[in-house]
Amino acid sequence: MITVACSSFFVPPEWVAAHGFRPERLIPEAPVTEGCVACGEGMCPYARAMAHAALRDDVRAVVFAPTCDQQRRVAELSGTRRQDAATFLLHVPRVARSENCRRYYRSEIERLGRFLVEIGGRPPEREFLIETMSRFDAARDRLRRAAEARRLGTSSLSARTLAEGMVRFHRSGDPEVIDTVGRGAGERGKAGRTGRRRIALLGGPLFETDLAFFDWIEVAGGDIVLDGTENGERTLAAAFDMARLGDDPVGELVRAYFDAIPDVSRRSNDGLLNWVRDSAAAGRIDGVVLRHHVWCDQWMAEVPRIGEVAGVPVLAVDSSGRPDGRTRTRIEAFVEMLLAGVGG
């Protein structure tokens, strides 16, 4: 199947799939340090890695839905550098409570549909669209339930395995891949989680190499019971309303994505802060590790407010490259502090 790569959680993969493509979320494996195409001083390492990832020639097109200025410029770079000129920029309105913006997002989704047809896709039959949306919805539901089971302590899945499962789901563009989440992984028994500190990992996108955080936190005596990073449960589209799905599938995409996903890029971003507050309370979180990339203004600026609303200690960890020893030491010290009951 031909692949269309998507940069953001605001691009509904079911919409791409219903047009006959395999939707792959672009999740760079690691920061790019050599042969740099966007190496200006001040460039967010994730945006830079995205600039590289977007040049892959094994994808038919790249769909950007930038949630920051740097990604928007990476989309431009991709548009000028890709030989096939198959770059699509979907503008995701930042203003959260404007009916004009909702309408515009819908119109952008429809425009994306026309683009997909132009590059060889087929306009989806209504029934096929609904069926495809239902399959993705069911997969997300399973992921959400797996996350909830971890929070309740009724699952033996490790936080890292779940995070890897999420990445696999986003990357594969195949809802059935969920069946394999956790399979073959050496899981830790539920009993091994008692006495650990309950951690929320929040922030922007993670490189695959950043999954080391999950291990470090666990080894230090923490347990990530809430993954609010960009590839985690925070950015999963809301569950579809089956009654509305039949009436207006595109409208349901708007509701599940544009209306429902809490993100730092929204203005106002109180949706994100409310989500942090509610999730921290419901998950009985002891501490927050907030991971942001250097030069990421949006996440950096919100660190103090996230601390306020979460009501628990926050450790902000920035990074310009691969996770390093210094970061590990800080994380260990933070979890130790929580274990000792300090700062709570």
């Binding site: 200025d69 740097q70 203005r267 203004d297």
Partner: peptide, 12 residues
């Protein structure tokens, strides 16, 4: 929207 992140984050 299509603005710089600096001002947007500061205004927030």
């Amino acid at each position: 929207g299509a603005t710089c992140d600096d001002l947007s984050a500061v205004a927030q």
